[in-house]
């Protein structure tokens, strides 16, 4: 009941969620606080992918590449050069944005399955470098001993202040992405998702819109990677793995494509599930696999999408998100 009420009033929901997140630390054990911090980092990554998957209708299978680029920037710059937070932040986001700018040129020549495959392969390029370029990345051993951020006005060495830093990062990413999707630019992306031909006929530069969306998603993904490295204190090729890319896709699909806060919820669910279930059983891969399949079979529109259509069925009027009518089939590109 509360959830439906919250969905009916998005602004109240946002303020409520913000208050809960702000007030959470004293109420949680340090273990749960760590998990919540991790959920927020993955939330940033999932939201950045949602710009592509949910709003533009492009299934990218290589989003972990940007996470890794951000994370490795931090790992290399802090452990070798003692760089402070701001330097690593700039380099990390820039590295991811540049990679996305190059990858976008290749990947956006294709659509559908081909786009998926090309982004997968490009993601593997980054994974390959992380795995093999040992003199730079330490290969499979990874870069350990990444310190907590320095150069900030207050110390974030402890769990709680660091949590607030991540919360600020999350809020920033959310506001930036929400501004993007609500702007005419974002609405154009939705138009492209629904019908590329129509948008082209209307005179929109389809490729350029997709390209800019692709680069923004990559840059925000890199931002998530920067925070991730500081959170984890460790960077390894696992950050760039195919499995990580697919997991982010799952977060977006589970939470609800094209809803921005849905993927953040999806990220939270998966992070909690992975960490809490693995406490009780070794068979958590089995459970995670079931979640993958269950999401597609039972909730193809994700948690938020399913709740929304249920709500809409009760109210018997079309579901609208920020003035955009959600495709009842669940969206996705046609053809």
């Amino acid at each position: 009941m509360t959830e439906t009420a919250l969905l009916r009033h998005p602004r109240t929901a946002a303020i409520g969620a913000a208050l809960v997140l702000l007030a959470a630390p004293p109420l949680l054990s340090s273990f749960l606080l760590t998990l919540l911090t991790q959920a927020l980092v993955y939330g940033i990554l999932a939201m950045s992918l949602d710009l592509l998957l949910g709003y533009t209708g492009l299934s990218s299978l290589g989003h972990a590449a940007y996470l890794a680029l951000g994370a490795y920037s931090v790992g290399i710059l802090t452990t070798r050069h003692g760089a402070n937070f701001w330097v690593t932040l700039m380099v990390g986001v820039l590295a991811a944005a540049v990679a996305a700018a190059i990858f976008g040129l290749l990947a956006l020549r294709a659509t559908g399955v081909y786009f998926l495959m090309i982004t997968l392969a490009l993601g593997m390029v980054i994974w390959g470098l992380a795995h093999r370029w040992v003199s730079m990345t330490q290969g499979d051993n990874g870069l350990s001993g990444v310190p907590r951020p320095t150069g900030l006005p207050w110390s974030v060495a402890e769990g709680v202040p660091f949590y607030y830093l991540v919360l600020i990062a999350f809020a920033l990413a959310f506001v930036v992405l929400r501004t993007v999707v609500r702007a005419p630019f974002g609405q154009t992306l939705v138009g492209i998702r629904e019908s590329e031909t129509r948008m082209r006929t209307l005179g929109y530069h389809v490729w350029l819109h997709k390209y800019i969306g692709f680069v923004i998603a990559g840059a925000v993904g890199g931002f998530a990677g920067v925070i991730w490295a500081y959170y984890n204190g460790f960077v390894s090729p696992a950050d760039a793995e195919l499995a990580t890319s697919v997991e982010v896709l799952l977060m977006v699909a589970l939470g609800g494509r094209g809803t921005l806060f849905g993927p953040a919820i999806g990220a939270g669910v998966i992070v909690m599930l992975k960490n809490l279930v693995s406490v009780y059983t070794h068979r958590w891969l089995l459970i995670l696999g079931t979640v993958y399949i269950g999401t597609i079979v039972y909730a193809p529109d994700g948690i938020v999408g399913t709740l929304r259509s249920w709500l809409a069925a009760r109210r018997r009027r079309p579901v609208g998100v920020a003035g955009v009518v959600v495709n009842p089939e669940g969206g996705g590109p046609h053809g």
Binding site: L53, S59, L249, I296
Partner: peptide, 28 residues
């Protein structure tokens, strides 16, 4: 599962990935 997911790349990726994880664990 898969025959119902024609044309839905995302659904295919996630479903088959789910199976891959399940098989991985069962093999273990």
């Amino acid at each position: 599962f898969l025959k119902r997911l024609g044309g839905q790349e995302l659904g295919q990726v996630l479903t088959t990935m789910g199976f891959a994880l399940i098989f991985q664990d069962l093999a273990l």
